[in-house]
């Protein structure tokens, strides 16, 4: 891509956030917003800088300085674990449900009843089962990511063009080879959609889980900031979860880009 178009694209992506921040800063400066409940964007930015990089002039000035990496690392590991488990189980079950109408009739009603139960409603149960903290958080992440992955994979397999299956058969493909040769590649765009939605939910569930009493993690940082009434820090935590979630989505999209370059409209 041309450098000029990249710069242009970045400028367009930044325009709306820049305008929002400008209005926010003006509203705080003009006194329309109570600074105790709504710190200025500048205050949030300096807190963020301190949270991420620390304050070299007074190291360890307070407990959150420079602690971002530690929190982000633990949180990312939790997401990778819970999400990874959801990918393995979700894609496998999704393929099976997509292939077998019989299995789908047995399993799908159960899935569809469990799926709408909010993650916060699972919280008490998961705390009773897994205790406060780490393992409950993993369970919630798994639960949040699992359903979008199963559903999208199932649909992806079900809508595979019957012609392609027949084409594979008449070219000599055995039933056991159909999975790898046809069903998986043909459903890949749909699987990608499931992974992206699932990963988004994984970050949501991570924060819900971490706010219930783990020592480290971005969610726990947000919870601690609330205890200390540090609204600037709450906002920093929220924004950072958003940015890391965005980065993780980009990683998935770029990972699939090569495998899906045959799909003409996916990466326009």
């Amino acid at each position: 891509m041309q450098v000029a178009t990249l710069v242009g694209r970045a400028a367009r992506a930044m325009a709306v956030p820049a305008a929002l921040i400008a209005v926010w800063q003006l509203a705080v400066t003009a006194g329309y917003l109570p600074p105790r409940l709504m710190p200025s964007p500048w205050k949030v930015a300096t807190t963020g800088y301190d949270f991420i990089l620390g304050n070299p002039n007074s190291p360890g000035a307070y407990v959150f300085s420079g602690s971002f990496l530690k929190h982000a690392y633990i949180s990312t590991l939790r997401v990778l674990n819970g999400f990874g488990l959801a990918v393995i189980t979700g894609v496998t079950l999704g393929i099976l449900l997509g292939v077998s109408r019989t299995l789908e009739r047995f399993v799908d009603p159960v899935l569809q009843v469990i799926r709408p139960i909010p993650i916060t409603a699972w919280l008490p149960l998961s705390i009773m089962w897994f205790g406060l903290g780490h393992r409950a958080t993993l369970f919630l992440i798994f639960l949040g990511a699992f359903f979008p992955i199963v559903i999208n994979t199932t649909i992806g397999v079900k809508v595979v063009d019957q012609r392609l299956i027949e084409a594979a058969q008449m070219l000599g493909t055995r039933p056991s080879q159909l999975f790898y040769r046809v069903l998986i590649p043909a459903s890949l765009p749909s699987v990608l959609a499931g992974l992206r939605v699932g990963l988004g939910f994984a970050w949501v569930c991570l924060v819900v889980g971490e706010m219930t009493g783990v020592g480290t993690g971005l969610g726990s940082a947000i919870a601690d900031a609330r205890e200390l009434f540090r609204i600037d820090l709450i906002m920093v935590g929220m924004l950072l979860v958003g940015f890391i979630g965005y980065a993780s989505d980009r990683v998935i999209v770029y990972t699939f880009r090569r495998a899906l370059r045959w799909s003409p409209n996916l990466f326009r």
């Binding site: 063009d161 012609r163 392609l164 027949e166 084409a167 594979a168 058969q169 008449m170 070219l171 000599g172 046809v182 590649p185 043909a186 890949l188 899906l260 045959w262 799909s263």
Partner: peptide, 18 residues
Amino acid sequence: GPGPDRGVVFQEQALFPW
């Protein structure tokens, strides 16, 4: 059943797009 001794050419596009 279907097999490679009987090659089929369909009316609709049936190449493997990937």
